[in-house]
Design a binder for these strands. Structure first.
Length: 203
DNA sequence: ATCAAGATTACCT
DNA sequence: GGTAATCTTGATA
């Protein structure tokens, strides 16, 4: 018997209920291939955004040029630019036309850490100490993985960016809280993170 | 045409 | 702990 090869998450995974998909994304491995290099990391923190009754969602006021990818069928990447400096990556969830997505807030680097350091700081750093600051925030992980708006709409069932299945976490391993950095619908407890993981953006 | 806010980060005390 | 940086988007203050 050869060891089981990690399986790429398929369309059926993404087209289910928002909060179920958000929780189950924790622990999965996001992979980005670029120029023969593999960059990957374990998803350790996410937030859910719904288009209908969630005023914090970009999709709440309907489809615009920026957010149109959110209304695709689940299983593609929604990337936007914010604060004049940062990109944020979201996984579109649910059925076509809904406007539902999960923001990836933090990952723990797995493969290609040397490239991530170079992407973040513009140079190589030998014996880099504060590894957690590489990818412990939505803007940081996009910079580390080299994700920008050219990746907006990327199909996650393809070969450039995809997510590998991992064993489902136990309920007690998952922390829940309010979302960060928003001013509307602030009371929804739609932030999920892996407890005791040092790459989670905040306590 | 104009303007304020924004799913943030880095740097300061 | 606090805030400046920086620019695109979406609403029209």
């Amino acid at each position: 018997m050869t060891p089981n090869k990690p399986v790429k998450l398929n369309r059926e995974f993404y087209t289910r209920n928002l909060l179920i998909v958000a929780r189950e994304l924790l622990g999965k491995i996001i992979v980005k291939r670029s120029g023969g290099k593999i960059l990957s990391g374990k998803i350790v923190e996410v937030e859910a955004y719904h288009g209908d009754y969630d005023q914090a969602s970009h999709a709440f006021r309907g489809k615009t040029k920026r957010n149109e990818v959110m209304f695709n069928e689940g299983g593609c990447l929604y990337v936007y630019f914010t604060y004049g400096a940062h990109f944020c990556a979201n996984i579109v969830v649910g059925k076509k036309g809904k406007g539902i997505a999960v923001l990836i807030r933090a990952i723990e680097p797995v493969e290609g850490i040397d490239v991530m350091i170079k992407n973040r700081f513009g140079r190589e750093i030998i014996q880099y100490k504060e590894k957690y600051s590489l990818t412990n925030g939505p803007g940081k992980l996009c910079q580390a993985l080299g994700i920008n708006t050219t990746h907006n709409g990327t199909d996650l069932t393809g070969n450039e960016i995809f997510i590998l299945d991992q064993p489902k976490l136990k309920g007690k391993e998952i922390g829940v809280g309010k979302r960060i950095g928003i001013t509307r619908s602030v009371d929804l407890q739609w932030r999920f993170f892996i407890k005791d993981n040092s790459f989670v953006s905040r306590k």
